[in-house]
């Protein structure tokens, strides 16, 4: 099972070591981790995607809450959150294949950010599903380099409101 944990932490050097160290020490697997400032420069948001069963996930959450630098831990359920990841992808595509790549890119709303003699670099943003679909569509081309930011996520306020009124 895959889960997204959104953590607000105090923004200072060492905090990432504390968070990452916890995962190492307790042998939890991190699938992706993304960190950046929030609206408050003293606070950083770390979005972590983890895999494991419910028991492990509960332990992860509780252990994270114990960290002194952690202000808030939130379990973001897929259905109730918006998730995005940015991908930079350089593929081998010379003159003869360029058009085909650009066509696929356009179909998925990906942008072309660089063209070289033998390669083309695309940028695309989306949720897991969209990214998987684009990568699948480009499978025929040989990848030179791929960089992913890891998932960032926020709760989908409208869904949560709706859910609350239903209750």
């Amino acid at each position: 099972m895959r889960k997204i944990i959104s953590i607000l932490v105090r923004n200072h050097p060492g905090v990432l070591s504390h968070v990452a160290g916890l995962f190492t020490r307790r042998a939890y697997n991190i699938e992706s981790i993304a960190a950046g400032e929030t609206e408050n420069p003293d606070v950083t948001r770390i979005t972590i995607t983890v895999s494991g069963d419910e028991v492990i996930f509960e332990q992860v959450t509780k252990q994270l809450r114990k960290l002194i630098d952690v202000i808030r831990v939130r379990d973001l359920k897929y259905a109730e959150s918006i998730t995005r990841e940015l991908v930079l992808l350089t593929i081998y595509a010379g003159m003869e294949k360029r058009q085909e790549v650009i066509m696929i890119a356009n179909a998925f709303g990906a942008s072309v950010v660089d063209i070289a003699e033998r390669t083309i670099t695309l940028e695309f943003v989306g949720n897991q599903r969209k990214i998987d679909t684009i990568l699948h569509a480009l499978e025929a081309f040989k990848i030179k380099e791929l960089a992913r930011t890891g998932i960032v996520a926020l709760p989908l306020e409208s869904q949560i409101e709706q859910h609350e009124t239903m209750l």
């Binding site: 028991v55 509960e58 332990q59 509780k62 252990q63 809450r65 114990k66």
Partner: peptide, 8 residues
């Protein structure tokens, strides 16, 4: 006192 011990 430690919630992380519950159910560990």
């Amino acid at each position: 006192i430690d919630p992380a011990e519950i159910g560990k």
